[in-house]
Amino acid sequence: MSLIQIQNLKKQYENEGVVTPVLAGLNFQIERGEFVAIMGPSGSGKSTLMHILGFLDKLSSGKYIFDGRDVSSLTDDELAQMRSKSVGFVFQAFNLLPRTTVLENVMLPLVYAKYSESERKQKATAALESVGLAHRLEYFTNQLSGGEKQRVAIARALVNEPSVIFADEPTGNLDSKSGLQVMKILQDLNDKGNTIILVTHEQYTAAHAKRAIKLKDGEIVEDALITNRQIAAGATDLKK
């Protein structure tokens, strides 16, 4: 069974009686272990699609079945539960808590997943080690470079071992070298079996994925495997 099944998914916003359609009946499936790039120009609905897939937003009509569960009928609390257990997010703007240490930021999802304090520390430390930030545990997030911030965000996204990691323009605020490091980490995670859904408008970034779903005006215009895949190498030394 597929991890994600989308049938005729529609999303529209209503504002003062004016209905703006954003997604116009999408159909696709994503299997476990895939690395999918959702692509499209701004306004194509790719972010909205990611928000719906990541339980941050609700669909207007159609079906979304995640791991055999019909998401469209879930309550707010059940959606919070799904966000807590099944998905992790990496945002373009990092969205780390200021005035808080790196370790505490990564421990945050575990608080809501009800892990004990010692488990939280141990899991968060392990996640930070896997993104090469073991030496930054007690730093405050505002003392980090952009690349380091995004690696903290990745550690936070993978700390509760989610079924899918969503990355929304993860390299958008980074220089090319830091961006490459981030893509390398995502590829490494995918190699270890993690499902990754990447949202981007850059062809170059999308080329790191294995499959690309291209959107335009709320419709899928192309859904194909990536032939000449980029492998982010040469950025192996994460501690720099």
């Binding site: 990541g54 941050l56 707010d76 609390d77 919070a80 539960q81 966000r83 807590s84 257990k85 992790g88 997010f89 969205n95 808590l97 945050l108 999802p109 809501y112 997943a113 936070r156 509760n160």
Partner: peptide, 16 residues
């Protein structure tokens, strides 16, 4: 508010 949004994104319920 952004912090609230983030906390919800990583699994906090309204009650939390």
């Amino acid at each position: 508010t952004r912090e609230i949004g983030l906390r919800k994104a990583v699994g906090a319920t309204n009650r939390n």
